[in-house]
């Protein structure tokens, strides 16, 4: 499958040099959520307005300084969709042409903000919504969220989470918005082509961006990019798009790494036995076998 064929960006040097999120901010060392925003803004450019839902990224501008060179507004945690809806109409009235980028964490998206997000999706508001997904309420110190994967330690699931993560992209697909994708900043070309598509489609686009969190997940900040790569290469985080009700996998690991390589690299899974990990490996294998059978693409039927 030649996924690069139709891509606008092919190599790292195709990524624009100009930055709209610049240095000097106070995000943690090795934070990939801030990297995700920096990369996305490179593609979206200066005519972009960011709406942020409360979370780690809310700490970027600290009065009286800001590392953002595009307009940025934060209202609260649960209303990025509602703010995007209103901003879309307000900009139309003011005759301002700009991308509206919602950038909110997984807790703000999967949990407390799902009502507002659903409202914007139902209205198919022309905005790009990127959920930077560190699989927990990261900013408050890594508490359980509905995006937290099964077995993960969080400070509120000390013995590991019992339930599996919510399947947010499928929930968004049920709203029949034109573009949905998953991504990871460790794969910037894949991610940024998705951002580009998201900006180009008319209507709402949703990207679920896995952003490994050194503090919450428990790994060396220098390893953030590697952890993201391992999440994808082990098959535990799938990169795909959903367009017109069809799922297409955008990256198929040539030879999948063992999930233990990903899990054993993080403190949040350190309590797992070899047996537990074996069961998780079997689950991932089964999913990928099924994907292979379907040619890495299939109709959702919704």
């Amino acid at each position: 499958m030649d996924i690069l064929k139709n891509m606008a960006l092919k190599k790292l040097t195709d990524i624009p040099m100009e930055d709209f999120l610049v240095g000097g901010h106070v995000a943690c060392q090795g934070c990939s959520a801030s990297l995700g925003l920096r990369l996305a803004l490179k593609v979206l450019g200066k005519d972009t307005i960011v709406i942020n839902g409360s979370g780690c990224m809310t700490l970027l501008p600290v009065y009286p300084t800001t590392p953002l060179r595009v307009p940025w507004i934060h209202l609260a945690i649960e209303n990025t969709g509602a703010a995007g809806t209103a901003l879309y109409y307000a900009l139309r009235r003011k005759n301002i042409k700009a991308n509206i980028l919602g950038y909110a964490g997984d807790g703000a998206t999967y949990d407390i903000g799902i009502q507002s997000l659903s409202g914007a999706a139902e209205k198919n508001i022309d905005m790009i919504y990127i959920c930077y997904n560190n699989q927990s309420f990261g900013n408050t110190g890594h508490q359980r969220a509905s995006s937290t994967p099964r077995a993960s330690y969080t400070s509120t699931t000390p013995s590991g989470k019992v339930e599996a993560a919510k399947d947010m992209p499928i929930i968004m697909a049920a709203h029949r918005i034109p573009y949905i994708a998953t991504a990871c900043p460790s794969y910037p070309i894949d991610f940024l082509n998705k951002v580009k598509k998201a900006a180009e489609v008319k209507g709402m686009a949703f990207i679920d961006l896995l952003t490994p969190c050194p503090v919450g997940w428990g790994f060396d900040p220098a390893e953030g990019i590697n952890i993201g790569r391992l999440a994808v290469r082990t098959g535990m985080w799938k990169l795909y798009e959903i367009e017109n009700g069809r799922v297409n996998v955008t990256y198929v690991p040539k030879k999948r790494k063992r999930v233990s390589e990903y899990l054993r690299a993080q403190a949040r899974f350190s309590h797992l036995s070899d047996e537990d990990i074996g069961a998780m490996q079997a689950e991932v294998d089964e999913e990928w076998d099924e994907l292979e059978e379907r040619g890495y693409g299939y109709e959702l039927g919704i």
């Binding site: 800001t66 595009v70 307009p71 940025w72 507004i73 209202l75 003011k94």
Partner: peptide, 13 residues
């Protein structure tokens, strides 16, 4: 306050 011609950060810390 929300115009790309005059970028500013609103509602921060």
């Amino acid at each position: 306050i929300l115009d790309p011609k005059e970028p500013m950060s609103v509602g921060g810390v």
